[in-house]
Amino acid sequence: MQDLQEKQVQGKEIDRLVAQYKSMPGALLPLLHAIQDSTGFIPETCYATIAQALSLSVAEVHGVVTFYHHFKTHQPGQHVLQICRAESCQAMGSANLEAHAKKCLNIDYHQTTDDRAITLAPVYCLGNCALSPAVMLDEELYGRVSIADLDALMLEAGASLAKA
């Protein structure tokens, strides 16, 4: 549970960002990015503030947040592990990486481990296709990833791995 104080701080930060972005043409996406960069996700509680500042309805804000895969409506784990599912990585065995990660972390895509260390997410191309299979841990990109490499990354991110 998020405590009250934390929520207030978050609210203030969001107010500050709204004020900073609201006069920009086409402000909504840059604003949502700024909020997510700062708080990790887009709290539903801020839709009304955004809507009012940009003269939109709350439903419109909700519609935009949920249209884009990048925007998260819940706080993710401490680290986000993205595994590329696109064709080039499939050709190099990404399905094995995907199955291995799900099994070891004991979660499916779009889920977070119980200890909140890792959120697992699919991604459709990281632009590292000459070095498939590729994964991204937070903003770090990795290429020609083997099962052993993936284990090392998950451990580095603080995961407690279930027996494979």
């Binding site: 191309c125 632009g127 590292n128 296709c129 000459a130």
Partner: peptide
Amino acid sequence: DEGDSGTFSDR
């Protein structure tokens, strides 16, 4: 937006 898998020339 370079969405196509297998492409990275834009990047």
